Amino acid sequence: MTKTSTARQPQNDPNRTGSLNRARWAVMRALLGTVGRASAGIRIGFRHGFDSGSMLDYVYVNKAGGFPVVGHVIDRVYLNAVGWRAIRARRELLKDVLRKEIARRGSSGGRDGADGGVRVLDVASGPGRYLQELLAEYGPGALHVECRDMDRAGLAQGERQAAERGLTGISYAYGDALDPTPSTHAPDIIVVSGLYELLLDDAVIATSVARLRGMLAPGGVLVFTTQTRHPQLEFIANVLPNREGVLWEMKCRPVELAEQWAGQAGFTEVASRRETVGLFTVTTASR
């Protein structure tokens, strides 16, 4: 007697797995877009983009908000996500790095005359809360900060915050970080924080690093961040919209590659430090 074999469905059917994943992400997007909006942070993300300066400013404050009880609970879980904890740790490391770079240039900034003081340019600042915090640590004229961004809402928010704090020595202007206009006074320090993580083309970043070197004052330093890993990349790329309203894709890179770009651009004394959560590095590169 001949046995008849029955065809079996492969255990790892890619079509079935893909369908399940798409369904799972669709459910999560639906939940986040409905119940999740009870959280103030998630509402900001849907309004301005989860990668926007306004979103990062809210993450920096780290105070749960939203509808009473339920919204606050959701918001606290949201703000405690590993990526946002790393963002806050990155901010503290960035401020520490900038303090050291400012100190290297002396309390007067190493400049003479009316233009004295260290000049800092952040080419993709958003509201620039961390720069306001840094500026408040120094006396009048010791530090001049220029904040640029293409997010006009974030710039307006930063201007309001600076005015409320009575800060002088900080200005806000619309500007494209990848096609920057030279400053009237060449900056001593240029900062690129949280931008290169959003760019998927390595060549674009390498070109930006080289271009920013040409904008620095002699002896100036470029300070930029790199995301080396992130355990929630798949979730973010399938659930969270960015400032352009499309799903937010990020790219992780080894810090050695970032340092290589700086070296190829002609920078010297290239060094990196990692924040305490372990997702980001801050690199300094001297002209």
Score class of each variant (00 low, 15 high):
129 R>N: 01
106 G>L: 01
131 L>C: 00
268 T>D: 10
151 D>Q: 01
257 L>I: 05
150 M>K: 12
82 V>N: 13
171 S>T: 10
198 L>W: 00
261 W>D: 03
284 T>K: 08
11 Q>P: 04
25 W>C: 06
247 L>W: 10
172 Y>E: 13
64 A>C: 04
273 R>K: 14
143 L>Q: 01
119 R>D: 02
271 A>M: 09
67 F>Y: 13
229 R>E: 12
236 I>M: 13
258 A>F: 12
115 D>C: 13
44 I>F: 13
270 V>R: 07
144 H>I: 04
14 P>S: 09
58 Y>R: 07
135 L>V: 04
54 S>W: 10
183 S>P: 00
113 G>L: 05
186 A>G: 04
223 V>L: 03
251 K>L: 14
174 Y>F: 03
233 L>C: 08
274 R>C: 13
136 A>H: 07
36 G>I: 08
182 P>T: 07
21 N>H: 06
99 R>P: 02
173 A>K: 09
42 I>V: 08
253 R>F: 03
202 D>E: 07
239 V>N: 08
60 Y>E: 07
42 I>F: 08
104 R>P: 06
228 T>R: 09
193 S>L: 13
23 A>T: 15
129 R>V: 03
178 L>S: 15
285 A>L: 00
17 T>L: 11
51 D>G: 01
169 G>Q: 09
245 G>W: 07
28 M>D: 14
10 P>H: 10
123 V>S: 06
138 Y>Q: 10
233 L>M: 15
207 T>P: 03
241 P>H: 10
3 K>N: 14
243 R>Q: 01
106 G>T: 00
255 V>K: 07
141 G>P: 00
13 D>S: 04
139 G>Q: 13
235 F>N: 06
194 G>E: 11
81 A>V: 05
83 G>T: 11
172 Y>M: 13
28 M>L: 10
124 A>E: 04
100 K>Q: 14
13 D>M: 04
181 T>E: 15
165 R>G: 02
247 L>F: 09
20 L>H: 09
153 A>K: 04
284 T>C: 05
82 V>R: 13
272 S>D: 00
270 V>Y: 08
220 G>M: 07
174 Y>M: 03
207 T>N: 11
239 V>E: 01
107 S>N: 07
47 R>A: 13
70 V>T: 13
180 P>I: 09
246 V>T: 14
150 M>T: 05
89 A>R: 11
45 G>Y: 10
172 Y>H: 05
196 Y>H: 06
136 A>S: 08
212 L>S: 00
48 H>G: 06
